[in-house]
Amino acid sequence: MAEQRYFEDVEPGDEFNEHWTPTRESVIGYLTVGNAEAGNTASRFTSDEEAKKIGMAKAIVPGAFSMVMASRVVADWMGPEGKLHSIDVDFRRPVLHDDTLNILALVTDTLEDDGVPTVKLDVYLENERGERPVQGTALVELPKRG
């Protein structure tokens, strides 16, 4: 289980990250959850050929999968008593199969509006081409010590 993060220990500028390389197998695994057929169907998410038909360099990773991974990084960081109130991302460029990604989150502000200890985060995926294909923000409530 992830370690608990406390509001007092967080300050703007803090950052954390996790590396991720989405393989074809992992994308199929994701697609198959709740829809066994999706992973077996040739689509822009599973086939380079299909992706090239719509102008992509190769098969792409579903946006929701990228968002899930970013959410997981935040959830692991905040710990079991943290509450992820929201995560909102923009998809600015495609994430391709086998991209070498760094999922980064940075604390941009800490607030106690209405007595609720809240942390604002920027969350983004960065690839080996210097691009940030997925960028967004998250709002997390953290417990206070004592």
Binding site: G13, D109, K120
Partner: peptide, 16 residues
């Protein structure tokens, strides 16, 4: 298409 506030930018610069 932006998620950053002007005050957020100023605060971030101070932190940097």
């Amino acid at each position: 298409d932006a998620g950053g506030t002007v005050e957020g930018y100023a605060k971030w610069i101070v932190a940097r």
